[in-house]
Each structure stands twice: as C-alpha cells, then as structure tokens.
Design a protein around this nucleic acid. Structure first.
Lengths: 395, 395
DNA sequence: GCCACTTATGCCGATGACCGAACAATGGAT
DNA sequence: ATCCATTGTTCGGTCATCGGCATAAGTGGC
C-alpha cells in the first residue's frame, strides 16, 4: 500500500479540470469510476464532483443500471448550459455550427459569402449567424463558452491573426479574437482551415491514430498535421503548406512562379483548366467532380493522374513524418475512388515498407461540416481544458 | 493575494523531480531562486532540496557572492556521483562518450568496429569500453545511471530493438536494453543515430529552436526531427527516412529499386561512384570530401549539385514541417561551404517565403562526438526525468 | 417478502504537505 | 559599530486528502 498523500509516488491527485476532462471524454461516468481511474479516495472524488456540479459544469443524471449493488449516479457534462460555435470561413462560403460541449452539433448553417468582403463585414455576418443559431436552439447567448474559427490562409495561432493570406484581402493581421471578445465576451481560437479539419477528422473518425495527415485537395492543396494527438503548426504556424512541393517529371507552370508544383499539377483549379483545354466545360473543382461522376474518360484519367501526383509527394511525406493515417478530403474527395487509387499506387511504390506496413490511406469520414465541426472541437477543447476549468472552479 | 494551498489557482507545488530539473538546467542555483521561479514557500523549497541532497542528487557548493544580504548557498547537480554513457554505433565505428549528468563529457573513445560483427560481439566491446572509461575517469561502476545508444538503422524506441535494419545484419529485434540491464543494471535507451544527433544538436547548439531538422549527408542520407523540443519518431519510429524521397528530373537508379532517390543522387556512396566513373579514385564519402578539399573541380561541382538535390527535397520538407532551424551534418558537412550553397539556393527558391523568412540553415556545430553526445543527452534526460527522480526520492 | 450480499456515496476524524511568519545567519553599506 | 538586505531554517496552523465506517439502494436466493 502506498503511503497516503505522497506526491512522489504514483501520485493520485487530479485537479477538478482533469476530472471534468475525464467525464467529458466519456471514459468514466460515475464517481466510483473516477476513483478507480484516478486512484483518488472516493471521498476526494465526491468533493471534486460536488465542486463541478456546484459550478454548473456537470449534471447528475438518473441512476444507471445496477450491477449487483447500489446503482451509480451517472455523471455527464451539463451540455444544456454550455455551447460553442465552430466557424468555417472558405473563399466563397461561410458555415457555422453550434455545438454543445459534449460535441453534439445542435444546429448548423451555411451560405455563400465572399471572404474578400473583408473582416468587418464577414465577421458581423458570423456574429448574426451565431446569434440566430443560439435563438433557434433556444440557448441563452450567455451559454456560449468559446468560438473556433477556420480560415483559408496562414494564421498566427497564438494571436489569432491571419498572416499575409493570399486569398483573404484585407485580413492581414486582423485581430479576429478581439472581434469576438467584444461581441460575445469569449475567447476565439483561429486556425488554418486544413488544421481544424485534421483535428476534427482525428478526434471524430480516428481517435486511436496519433499521427495523422489530412490532405485537402480542393482548388488548392493543403495538409493538416496531427502529431502525438496534437496539431503541429510549425515555427511560423504555416506547416502543412504542401501545395507548392515539386512533383517529379512534371513542369506545369504554377501561379507561385515555379513549375511542377503539386497544386499546378493536381489542384482542382488546374484540373478544371486542363479540361477546358480539352474543350470541356469546367470552371472549378466541383465541375471536375461532376464530369468524373458522369463518367467522362478524360476527367477520370486526369483525376487518377492527379492522385498519382499527390501520392508522389505524399510518399515523401510518409517517409519523413511516418504517420499511421492519411485522410484525403476536400472537394475532390467526392471522387475518392479514382483519387485514392492513384495516391495509394504512388505511396506504396515509393515509401519505405516499414512506414507503409500499418499505414491507412482513407477518404475523409466527416462530411460537409468537417471544418466547422473541427473548429468547434478546437473551441470545446479550449473551454474544457483543465486550466480553464480550474480557473472557473477556483474563481 | 491568492489563497494558500489552492491547487486550482496558480498552483505552486513542484515535485522533487521538477526541482532537480530546474537545478540541472542551470536556470537556478540557489534555494531562493527556486522559490522565486516555482512560487513555492521558501520552507517548502528547503524541504525539497534537503531530500535531493539526502539522496545524493544535489551538492551544496561554497557560498555564492552576496548581493547586499546573506550570501546564498549554491546548489548543483552532484556530478561526481552520477554518470551516463553515450554510445554511437556506426556501420564501421564505435564511439563511446562518458558524461556526467551535468552534460560534461568526461572521456570519449573511438575505434573502428564493424556493426556486422553482430550484437553480441559489438555490445560486449561497448561494455568493455564503458568500463575502461569509468576506470580512466576514476568513477565507480555503480555511478552509471543510464546508457544512450544511437544505431544506424530503424529502432522501435519503446523496446529499444532494431527493426529490419538494412546495414545491421543479425540485429533485427535484438533486445539491446536487456543486454545493458544485465551488465550494468541500468536502463538503456536506443534510438536511430540521426535522432540522437538531432537531439544533441538542438540541446547543445540551438536550445532556443523548437522545430529543428538535422540532415545527415553521409554514405546515405537521413533526417532527425525535433518538434516542440521533443524528438519526433512517428508511428513506427522510422520518421526522418528521407533518403529515398524522389528528386525531380533526376533518374539515378537506387539500390532500393526506384530511380531518382535523394540518396542515389546526393549520397556519399553515390557521389564516390560517380567520381570513379570520371576516372578519379574515390571509394567513399570521405574520399569525396578529400577531393573537394583538394580543389578538384568535378568533385566541387558534384557536391554543389548534391546540395541542390538535398535542397530540392528539403524545400518540400520546410513547407510541410515549417522548422525554424535546419542543421546539415554527416561526413559531407566537412565541405559545408559547397553543400550549403546548393541547399540554400534550392530551399529559398522553392519554399514559401513565410516559412523561410526566419529559417536558419547552418552546418552542424557539434563535432565528431555528435552522436555519442546526443545519445548521452538522451540518457541524461531519462535519468533526470521527474518520474525517475521522484521514484528515487520517494523509494 | 425478507435477508444476505454487492456496489455506490456521504460523513468524519486523522494525517501530513505546504504555507507564512518569525527568527537566525551573514555579509555589505554607512 | 550599527543597520539593512538577503538567504535559509524552524515552527505552529491550515487545508486537502485519506481511510474507515455508516448509509443508501439495488440484486438474488430462500
């Protein structure tokens, strides 16, 4: 038996925030469970739980089924009272998902919106949408705990400010978190859209995968990186910018000034342009998808070709990063049969066997709301972080 | 004033292990310092320090200079009583560095040794060398706390076993830690040689850099990855295997069966072979270095060319990983003027400006002992890890 | 239906980690 | 010589946490 209250040995002692995280994760649902997992005394657990209940963070449900003894009281996050918003800003759309802190999507809304309208106009629109969704789901505005935002460009995550975003005119250094702080009084977390999609995909669809790459093939091509369960943003926060990696043996000119960039070879915009060159009607990536789905041979061949190009680059990244999972998402993932075939072919040909032996390459499992939900998860994980909760319970 | 003993608010409270880590880092040197940094009461700090002294982990030096009040007693790791060994196993050499837990190299020894002799023979040799170094520096064998080992092939870090290492016949799944546990009774940590070099370089030469890539250009080409201050090993532990990434527009056949691999284009072995093809006498990477240093035009051109190929691949990795520092090491780093010129040229041409704006690309600053010292640091960080120390102090 | 048994939670005194304040030590400043 | 600034130690008090016991609330056998 270990000596009591010994912070040196297998140290029990978990802060209220850590207890809440356990409850939130769904891994434990009763006080007795918590005591078993944390090894804290049952009395201590009750104390922690009482504090969380007193602060309205946890609810005591009805009794759970008995397993031969007194039935436990089930504990759960007080989802009614705590909501977050996940915002997905695209080049030409805006999607907002209202979620409770349990991760359930309560309502979502999408509409076309040009990011080029500038931060003031766009963010005011987001604010209105969030308020509308709160009303629609009959939640008090005061129940909003935080906001996650995904934007189509590089962001300095710590300050939440876009940095020289190529397709977001007027957004450079705009203080997005301050906007939401003044409107809702909550913290906003802003990240690149591919990052939040990677986070959402990992948390929702691949919870057991610790090293995940999310490849988004849309108009451009980007990559979100989850390493050891956390987002890897790199030194300047622009990690995952794979659109301009050189593809061997191809010389398609790219808007970046170089030739043979992955984006120029396999990006939706470039595929569409090539199809136009063949006399077909394709303005964007979605038209490419439509043509493939209708069985157009040139389009199918081209997407497969694009898959090989993506796979060529991905093969190098797999060798370098050694992920356990690669997820293909973005507009062109709608035709993932063709795309994945090319990707797998190239990756398995060129990557090291040890790196590919357990590697999974799969299409995205999250749907249209991927980015909004991912942003919401970012917000939830902030709101439920032990530091946040401890501050709340202590204050 | 925050209420005392509140584990929720700005929670002071640091375990003995954390206190030792502070002392070991050199950031603090007196009890008063520790109290200021950790915000614990001075009495508590004394208690922690007393425990560490009682267990022989910390020494109380002579007084430090007064600054107008009572002079502080300086604290330092008890380096006399705690040593580690760092072992660098190469294809044809074995280097052992004996270090104290403060990180000072006490003695080092190198000699030629073929890894192909098999684990039994090689590890017995290592054991003899470690014992000789202990005797040479007049340390008791019992002062050895742990052993770090870098090997030239993939390793499952958690078990310390090589996994299908191409140039280490007979080592597949050999339990290296068990060997040392039975001989010295200490834990051995085994990792890929490039990983320990990256770790050593980061800790020694670039302590402020959190995202570092260490590129080793020797016979082959490999990469060690430090992300957020920790080694990134990937899902299977084979991350950083960049030798067989495809280089655009080049088709040199590679031993792996593919063509255009970085290693086939720019590896020391391949460069030597090409020089032989030009009628020059070059058996390995070191001969290439010799030729470059003697001003041979073909060799200089070829190394520069190799630099560009490395840079081409590195440009992609910089976009993907967004490091703040890239270090070039390995045998060919001896001619880093020529190599770096090519690397920088390619990286700055092809990487995203945001990723390169603060990027440093520099030659390795650690010398011949890089891998052995890196392995030693791995061992030190294990021996001084809070978990280890807490167990010691508690037990 | 009653009772033994099992499991969950609440209550309470005991323990000890940590704190803060007072005190001792030690050298510089005046 | 005296005061001051700073460091470290001692000691009593507080509070978080523990373990044990009482209570709650089911199941299953008889």
């Amino acid at each position: 038996m270990s000596s009591p209250s010994d912070r040196n040995s297998a140290a029990a002692s978990h802060s209220p925030g850590e207890v809440l995280a356990l409850i939130g994760s769904g891994a434990v649902t009763t006080r007795a469970d918590i005591a078993r997992v944390t090894k804290m005394a049952r009395s201590t657990v009750s104390q922690r739980v009482d504090a969380l209940i007193a602060h309205g963070l946890v609810d005591e449900d009805a009794d759970g089924g008995s397993t031969g003894g007194r039935p436990p009281r089930r504990l759960a996050l007080r989802t009614r009272e705590h909501a977050v918003a996940g915002v997905d800003l695209g080049a030409s759309h805006c999607r907002v998902a209202l979620m409770d802190i349990g991760g359930t999507t309560l309502a979502a809304h999408e509409e076309p919106l040009s990011i080029g309208d500038g931060p003031d106009s766009v963010l005011r629109h987001v604010e209105r949408t969030v308020r509308a969704l709160l009303k629609e789901t009959q939640r008090e505005p005061g129940t909003l705990r935080s906001i996650g935002v995904g934007v189509p460009g590089p962001v300095e995550f710590s300050t939440g400010r876009p940095v020289d975003p190529p397709i977001m005119p007027g957004w450079h250094q705009y203080p997005i978190p301050e906007f939401f702080a003044s409107r809702f009084g909550v913290r906003a977390l802003v990240d690149n859209d591919v990052n939040v999609m990677a986070l959402g995909e990992q948390r929702r669809a691949f919870p057991d995968c610790r090293y995940l790459l999310y490849i988004k093939v849309g108009t451009g091509i980007g990559c979100g990186i989850v390493a050891d369960g956390r987002l890897h943003r790199g030194a300047q926060g622009c990690a995952g910018d794979i659109g301009h990696i050189r593809v061997a043996d191809l010389d398609d000119p790219c808007r970046c000034g170089n030739a043979g960039c992955l984006e120029a070879v396999a990006g939706g915009a470039s595929l569409a342009a090539k199809l136009v060159g063949l006399g077909l009607d394709a303005a964007s990536g979605s038209d490419v998808v439509r043509l493939v789905q209708s069985g157009n041979r040139d389009a199918v061949r081209m997407v497969r070709e694009a898959g090989r190009a993506v796979g060529e680059v991905l093969a190098g990244l797999v060798n370098f990063f050694n992920p356990d999972t690669v997820v293909m998402g973005g507009a062109l993932a709608a035709v993932h049969d063709q795309l994945l075939a090319g990707v797998r072919e190239a990756v398995y040909r060129r990557s090291h066997p040890l790196a590919t032996q357990l590697l999974r390459i799969e299409p995205s499992r999250t749907g249209e709301n991927a980015a909004a939900v991912g942003a919401g998860i970012l917000a939830i994980e902030h709101a439920l972080s032990p530091e946040q909760v401890n501050r709340l319970v202590a204050g």
